[in-house]
C-alpha cells in the first residue's frame, strides 16, 4: 500500500513538471479517431439530413439542386385525404398494438419470474419472430389469414400482424424490469396483508410503471414503422409506410420528402420519450439498489 501511494506521488510530481506528456492508450491516434468518427456520423445522418433539406426544396422534382426554400410540400401532405387517412390508420393501429403487446408482455414477464420445466425453451420461442425475415413473416401471416378466412383489413389482419411483430420486443424491454424486481418488496406487502392482486396494483406496477410506458412507446414506434409484414396483409387499408411505398412506386411525388420527415419526427419523438422513461426506470432501480445495500 505504502509503496503504491509513494509511486503515485512520484508520477504526480513528474507530470506536474511536464504537463504535455500523456500516456493514455491510443492517444497517438487522436486525429485518426476524429476523422473516423466524423465519417461515421456523416454516413449515419447524412442521408437523413438530405431528406430534411429536400422536403423544403421548392422544386417539382425530388432532387438537387436546391431551388429555394418552401413549406408547400407540407401543405400538400396535410391537404391529402389519402395521406391523412393513412396517418390516422398508422397512429390508431400503433396505439392499439402497443397497448395489447405491452399488456401481453407484462403478463408474460410476470409468468417468467416463476421457475417451471422448459422455461428457457419457452423463453426462446417467444423471441423467434425477431429472427424470422420480415418477408417470410409477411407471407406466413398472409397464408395463415387466408386459411382461417379472415379478410385483410386494418383492425383485423394488420393489428394482429403488428402485435405479433412487436410482442417479442416488448417482452425483451419489460422482462429485465420484472426479473430484477426485489421480491422482498412483494413479500413485505404480503406480510402486511396484501393479496396477490393488491401486491401487483399497489407495489409492482407503480414501481415498474416507467418501464411499462417505455415499452409501450417503443412498441408504438415499431408498429408505426412496420412495412414488410403490413403490405402483405393490409388489403385495401393503408398505413403510412404502405401509402408511402405506393407513392414511390406510382410516381416519385414531390411531397415524398416532406412525408418522410413527418414519419421520422413521429418515430423519433415516441422513441425519445420511450428512452426518457427507460432512463427513469433504470434510475429508480439504481436508487433502490443503492438503498438496499
Amino acid at each position: 500500500m505504502v509503496s503504491i501511494t509513494a509511486g503515485q506521488e512520484n508520477i504526480a510530481k513528474r507530470s506536474a513538471r511536464k504537463p504535455a506528456r500523456s500516456h493514455r492508450p491510443y492517444s497517438g491516434y487522436r486525429t485518426a479517431l476524429w476523422i473516423y468518427a466524423g465519417a461515421f456520423y456523416t454516413f449515419l445522418y447524412g442521408p437523413l439530413l438530405m431528406i430534411v433539406l429536400l422536403s423544403f426544396n421548392n422544386s417539382e422534382i425530388v432532387g438537387f439542386p436546391f431551388q429555394g426554400f418552401t413549406t408547400r410540400w407540407y401543405d400538400v401532405v396535410f391537404a391529402s385525404p389519402a395521406l391523412l387517412k393513412a396517418l390516422g390508420n398508422s397512429v390508431g393501429v400503433g396505439i392499439l398494438a402497443a397497448a395489447i403487446a405491452t399488456t401481453l408482455a407484462l403478463s408474460l414477464a410476470m409468468g417468467f419470474r416463476h421457475q417451471f420445466r422448459g422455461k428457457s425453451i419457452v423463453l426462446y420461442l417467444i423471441l423467434v419472430p425477431i429472427i424470422i425475415p420480415g418477408i417470410i413473416g409477411g407471407i406466413v401471416l398472409l397464408i395463415f389469414f387466408g386459411f382461417s378466412g379472415v379478410r385483410s383489413s386494418l383492425w383485423t389482419t394488420v393489428l394482429v400482424a403488428h402485435v405479433n411483430w412487436v410482442l417479442p420486443f416488448a417482452f425483451l424491454t419489460l422482462f429485465p424490469r420484472l426479473h430484477g424486481f426485489d421480491r422482498a418488496l412483494e413479500e413485505a406487502a404480503m406480510d402486511l396483508g396484501a393479496r396477490p392482486w393488491e401486491i401487483f396494483t399497489r407495489i409492482v406496477f407503480p414501481i415498474i410503471r416507467p418501464g411499462v410506458i417505455a415499452t409501450a412507446l417503443f412498441s408504438f414506434s415499431l408498429s408505426f414503422d412496420e412495412f414488410i409484414r403490413t403490405i402483405f396483409v393490409s388489403g385495401f387499408d393503408r398505413t403510412i409506410p404502405v401509402q408511402f411505398w405506393g407513392l414511390i412506386v406510382d410516381e416519385l411525388a414531390p411531397e415524398l420528402p416532406a412525408m418522410a420527415v413527418l414519419i421520422i419526427v413521429i418515430s423519433i419523438f415516441s422513441s425519445l420519450v420511450g428512452f426518457y422513461f427507460m432512463w427513469r426506470a433504470s434510475r429508480s432501480a439504481a436508487t433502490y439498489a443503492r438503498k438496499a445495500s
Partner: peptide, 9 residues
C-alpha cells in the same frame, strides 16, 4: 426484512 424492503415509491 433483512434489507427492510420499504416501498420506494
Amino acid at each position: 426484512f433483512q434489507h427492510l424492503a420499504l416501498f420506494p415509491h
